[in-house]
Design a protein around this nucleic acid. Structure first.
Lengths: 345, 345
DNA sequence: TTGTACGCGTTATCAA
DNA sequence: TTGATAACGCGTACAA
């Protein structure tokens, strides 16, 4: 690890000159010395010490990606294909802009904020925040923040949220399901907050518009904890028989449900129609291929990172960026079974 | 961002005392002052500046995770469920040990090494390295390195490789397939290097042991680039009719193949048996559920991180750690179809 | 038990 | 065009 000081010594010049060459301050240095220094830099393969640089400049070139893990969901958040794709988009964008990504996963907002302060990160991307987390964060951290899929940041000024038109996406899918002739349509999710709530609302709007009444029992709650999921699926498959279609809040749940139904001898889509949301590998590789609502997750990551970089440069950004969805019609939603035919298939 | 200096001023003491309290050097400081300082630290929510600390100590508390992306495979490496799970295991282990993870993805080994030097990372975990990459790395970087699934690091001293008994896993699966009565068994992969080669060798060993001859054409090469995959699958499905079972190098390919076969009216396992390797979500959620070789990917990440931490502490570690595999028998491998029955199903 | 002073590698200011 | 020197925040040897 050669330092500027050493280089200056060996070349018989001052550190300032070397530093000037490194930073291409052309006006400040003669052509001759510039050449000499540059050659030497190549030769010894000089790499700047970023700690020293950051200390001197009070910046870090680090962008923090903090994932707030949910206690009940995945034991390993990153295994969610959604999260994985998101990270890919973010990392690529950050890297191309000359920044670096530091990943931090925690259930504890406090810990996340300590981490962020410690590293003096230049900007922060948050995923999985709910309710008052945002407020807690904004009092501690004064640099730019971009949130992903967060529905509770309205009042907060220097935040931007990058989200999806979840409500509209679900609305359009359920409208399509209804147009296929379905009247008894359930909604499957594991909670009714944030993104899930928005999708639920879209579902309700489509029902209402078609004059179909919604009641509490049309909400099928899945318990994702691995210990409970089988029991949970048992109950859901049983209740599913009262419906001809189920709108699932995610592709993962749609595929999980289809497998469970298949195991119990109920065929999709002949026995029941299933729709997903997200459009990931899980649904496109399954057979029958899943009818779902598409969102471009990588793009979401890219937009989030780009917006954050803008903020860091001091440019103005919108407070809310909403990406569109698109219906992907494949094979799991068809005409409903004859309504007299209520047994197993 | 309050500094030690400020704290010392406000408390009318020296920075050394404050620093001593922070580092719990109990013997060096009176109970009274310790209490006073600690209270004040809480009050102002002191967070150390890690750049200054690292600069002073010449360490970074950063562990680099460098993924060498392959040009032809995923446009977004992290979308590989394998990679995602791996990262989860690594991040968790590193975080619990008080280190931080910096993720860097590149196709260019040089770039990876520059990045690593810049940040002065205390240790490095490498994934996706092939052939001479290891040598290039070891000349540049003198701190501890752990490789994952790398088959070409034999000679290199301060490396440890964490791998899997790929050969044995494939061997056992193919042996099982043969025990079900199959004689015509193909192998599907996209290359014959590293991990893929080891699995191919296991397949060959099982064939040989059973007195089944292997010929070049039994290797079905899939081309994963999205533009070519359909064409590729067309050819593979056609050639698949010559076999009663196909050993796939990964769950992803197994599921991809099953979908393609289903689309062409060939049923699994009635028409053809399929086996995978990895045991991830893709295979367990598919119906029929995939018979596959299990590996604990998260554990692999944990072991890699733990080994690296050991190396950083100066402890001895083995040069090669090989994790075991386990057969997961589900529904996609059964008795072969009658051999006269060669058409579509 | 506490304080002074210096070094870590870099950038920035200002003088030569 | 170049060079001395201070500053960034922290840790630590050594002095008091």
């Amino acid at each position: 690890m050669i330092t500027i000081k050493e280089i200056a010594q060996r070349l018989n010049m001052s550190t300032t000159t070397v530093s000037n060459v490194i930073h291409g301050k052309a006006g400040e240095v003669s052509e001759e010395t510039r050449r000499r220094v540059e050659e030497f830099l190549k030769e010894v393969d000089y790499v700047p010490n970023i700690n020293a640089r950051n200390l001197a400049q009070n910046e870090s070139k680090i962008i923090g990606l903090a994932l707030k893990a949910r206690v009940d969901k995945y034991e390993n958040l990153i295994m969610d294909p959604f999260v994985a794709e998101l990270i890919g988009g973010i990392e690529e964008t950050i890297r191309n802009a000359g920044y670096f990504m530091m990943l931090y996963i925690s259930r504890d907002t406090e810990k996340i904020m300590r981490h962020v302060s410690t590293w003096n990160v230049d900007g922060l991307i948050l995923f999985g925040m709910l309710d008052d987390d945002g407020i807690r964060v904004s009092t501690k951290y004064k640099k730019p923040i971009v949130c992903l899929d967060t529905y509770s940041m309205e009042g907060l000024k220097h935040f931007t949220n990058v989200g999806l038109d979840d409500e509209q996406g679900a609305y359009e899918m359920v409208k399509y399901i209804i147009s296929c002739g379905h009247q008894r349509i359930a909604f499957l999710s594991d909670n009714t907050k944030g993104v899930d709530l928005a999708r639920l609302n879209g579902y309700k709007r489509a029902l209402k518009e078609a004059g179909i009444e919604y009641s509490e029992k049309d909400f099928l709650k899945i318990r994702p904890a691995s210990a409970e999921i089988e029991e949970s699926l048992d109950e859901i498959c049983h209740r599913a028989l009262d419906y001809t279609a189920i709108m699932c809040v995610s592709d993962l749940y749609a595929v999980t449900l289809m497998s469970a139904l298949t195991d119990r001898g109920i065929r999709v889509p002949e026995g029941i129609s299933i729709a997903g949301f997200d459009d990931n590998m899980l649904g496109s590789l399954y057979r029958p291929a899943l009818t779902t609502v598409h969102q471009d997750v990588k793009q979401k990551g890219v937009v989030a990172a780009e917006t954050l970089l803008k903020k860091i440069r001091g440019e103005e950004t919108e407070a809310q960026i909403t990406l569109p969805t698109r219906l992907v019609i494949r094979d799991t939603v068809t005409k409903p079974r004859k309504s007299s035919f209520m047994g197993r298939f």
